[in-house]
Design a protein around this nucleic acid. Structure first.
Lengths: 190, 190
DNA sequence: ATCAGCATGTAAGGCGTTACATGATTCA
DNA sequence: TGAATCATGTAACGCCTTACATGCTGAT
């Protein structure tokens, strides 16, 4: 019943690369992970607070003086920034999670639900539902391909390789989705 | 904030075909929808109770006498069965939902999270995580192919067609997953 | 002057899971 | 006799989303 919360691992994973604020973490999830994970401020900030109590992460000591470098609190510029860093305990927890091969892979597509129950409406309705899905996939796919072309140049770098792999996963599945959409629409129109 | 609960539509969709008990609904979800939706008893039974209050569904009148046919409460045999049927209001709600093209398609793959953060462990760990995923996909794919070969015989029947389309979706994406797994493992090993 | 972006957090509530409680029938 | 399947439900709790509250900086 306890501790099934994956957002902790997302935070730990991100902080294992560099120190970040909650806001940074949110942006990173939205930009890099959004094809297979989500996270809202309402889940990130409370997780950050609890994880600090568990000594998985720690606030960096804010520097008082002028220089406003990354990882420091900028006094007198913008709202307060709280930059977190991962602790040794946190790295251990991340490693333990990575080594444990059990994983919950959950897919819930309302579009498929609407197709499955398509018989309760006419075929045009089903086709319309597929088309909306198709457009969303098409636009996400474009984005993913932009990412990939950037990443392909740096496959020697391990960090880029792992990102490249998840982007490739997205591209491969989205391309399969598009083929299915075309096919399904033909079957429904014919 | 209110009424985002999709289980209602699953129930309505299933009852639009035939009267069922909560237990039947659970089994149907596990067998036919599990590749893109899930539902537990703890979500089904409370939904059933609320939906009856909203007049979306109704309990069928139990027959007292001997004959124990489908859709009737069997007295003296097994535990009580409560068979639900969809109402006119329920059919309307189902139709409204189907016609509304907005849909939340949500994918959360912990495996991809572990790949993305793969840099925090060694490459063998990443390969192991992919392999576990691969085996799960492989076994689900086999099942889907069995379904498809049955369904292909009845594509003239509309109900079978819609089921066929969702099964095809599963097959297409799972095959794409397997290609990705092979490729990713090669990239990580090389 | 106003809007977008940066930045942190809380509150309310919805949705869902797991585990528990209960019990009959059928089959090995 | 015991396990599996049928069958309904509740309780506790966890996790997440949305909306709200607040406020600075910089660009147009």
């Amino acid at each position: 019943m306890a501790k099934d919360r994956k957002i902790d691992m997302v935070i730990l994973g991100l902080l294992s690369h560099e120190d970040m604020t909650g806001y940074d973490i949110k942006k990173r999830i939205d930009n890099h992970l959004r094809f297979f994970w989500k996270g809202s401020f309402g889940s990130i900030y409370p997780a950050l607070a609890e994880m600090e109590k568990e000594d998985l992460i720690r606030k960096t000591i804010p520097k008082r003086q002028p220089a406003v470098k990354a990882g420091e609190v900028a006094f007198g510029s913008g709202r307060e920034r709280i930059v977190y860093k991962i602790t040794a305990t946190g790295r251990e927890a991340l490693s333990t999670w990575l080594t444990d091969t059990k994983a919950s892979n959950d897919l819930r597509y309302e579009t498929l639900l609407k197709i499955f129950f398509g018989g309760a409406a006419d075929r045009e309705t089903a086709i319309a539902n597929i088309s909306v899905f198709e457009e969303q996939v098409r636009s996400d796919l474009m984005l993913l391909k932009i990412y990939r072309s950037d990443l392909e140049k740096h496959l020697d770098n391990d960090d880029h390789l792992y990102f490249y792999l998840t982007v490739s996963f997205g591209i491969d599945t989205y391309e399969a989705y598009l083929r299915w959409c075309k096919n399904a629409k033909e079957k429904l129109a014919g």
